[in-house]
């Protein structure tokens, strides 16, 4: 393997990435939750993502890493059509959820986003009470029929997000009054309350301190049993700690996808190695 790998490693300055190395596609296609085939994303004339092929498996955490501006966030936002809000942004290629094309004409973006939830870099609770924050999505989609069901849902979601104990006496206080870490868990609770199938996380802990980060990482590990999670992160330690697979993006191209410990211990691609050893990025 070592000689094989050595020949595969390309030159450090070679940014002409022809094919993704590693295992972007899962062997057992029944395990695939979301899949991208030849996905390109354009901002007007500027191409941000070049032909990405990637499978995201059921109940796995896949981490996307790469230097700033490499397109990992753009790719993540393409997965629940968040890019639709930007007029000049165009997505081509196939992106599927459970085998269905999410960019198909008859695919409703609202329904898609109910199935593929998102947690953002900066905690963004609504300027409403903690209770209303969590209840918002359920109310929006009419998931509950009465108050006691809603109460239960709010409690269950906050419990899953590991926040309930801390806020059970102040559910009617503003969500914006919580600490940064609590706000981010509130946002996770809010996302869980809609009962999505996939949760996309865009650098969810980059604005948090190490303790809050540890709590959220622990939480993600538990959530993995019920949800598929795709996370973009700048912290390689975080990717190493929480994910099962890691995807490395470079200049809009998917360079390498492998099991996380393979990527961090024995990267196949020279660019990946340079990045994780801190030579750039």
């Amino acid at each position: 393997m070592s000689t094989d790998t050595a020949t595969k490693k390309r030159d450090e300055f070679d940014v002409e990435i022809l094919d993704t190395v590693g295992q972007p596609l899962l062997k057992d296609q029944a395990e695939v939750k979301m899949a991208a085939r030849g996905c390109d994303v354009f901002y007007a004339d500027h191409q941000a993502i070049f032909g990405v092929d990637l499978d995201i498996g059921k109940n796995e955490i896949i981490a996307m890493i790469g230097p700033s501006g490499c397109g990992k966030s753009t790719f993540l936002r393409a997965l629940n059509r968040m890019n639709d809000t930007i007029d000049i942004c165009k997505v081509t290629g196939d992106l599927t959820l459970d085998g269905q094309d999410i960019y198909a004409k008859d695919q409703d973006p609202v329904l898609l986003r109910a199935r593929v939830g998102m947690v953002f870099q900066k905690p963004n609770p609504f300027p409403k009470s903690i209770y209303d924050n969590v209840a918002y999505g359920a109310r929006l989609h009419g998931l509950v029929t009465n108050k006691s069901e809603l109460d239960d849902l709010v409690e269950a979601s906050l419990t899953k997000a590991g926040l309930f104990k801390e806020v059970k006496d102040s559910l009617l206080k503003p969500g914006t009054g919580l600490s940064g870490g609590q706000q981010q868990r509130l946002c996770i609770a809010r996302t869980i309350a809609v009962d999505p199938e996939v949760i996309l996380m865009d650098e969810p802990t980059s604005a948090l301190d190490p303790i809050a980060t540890a709590i959220i990482e622990e939480l993600m590990d538990e959530l993995r049993h019920n949800y598929t999670i795709a996370i973009v992160t700048h912290s390689m330690q975080q990717a190493a700690r929480i994910s099962q697979r890691t995807a490395y993006f470079h200049l809009g191209k998917l360079v390498e996808v492998n099991a996380t410990n393979t990527v961090f211990t024995n990267p196949e691609h020279k660019l990946t190695e340079n990045y994780i050893t801190g030579r750039f990025g």
Binding site: R113, F120, N124, F126, Y136, L140, R190
Partner: peptide, 26 residues
């Protein structure tokens, strides 16, 4: 802030719901 629109859209609110429930009150 755009983060507020994203939060609502990310939960599956439609554009009109986002505008009337979050943007305009703010």
């Amino acid at each position: 802030p755009p983060s507020m629109r994203e939060a609502a859209l990310g939960l599956g609110a439609s554009k009109v719901q986002t505008v009337f429930q979050h943007v305009l009150p703010t």
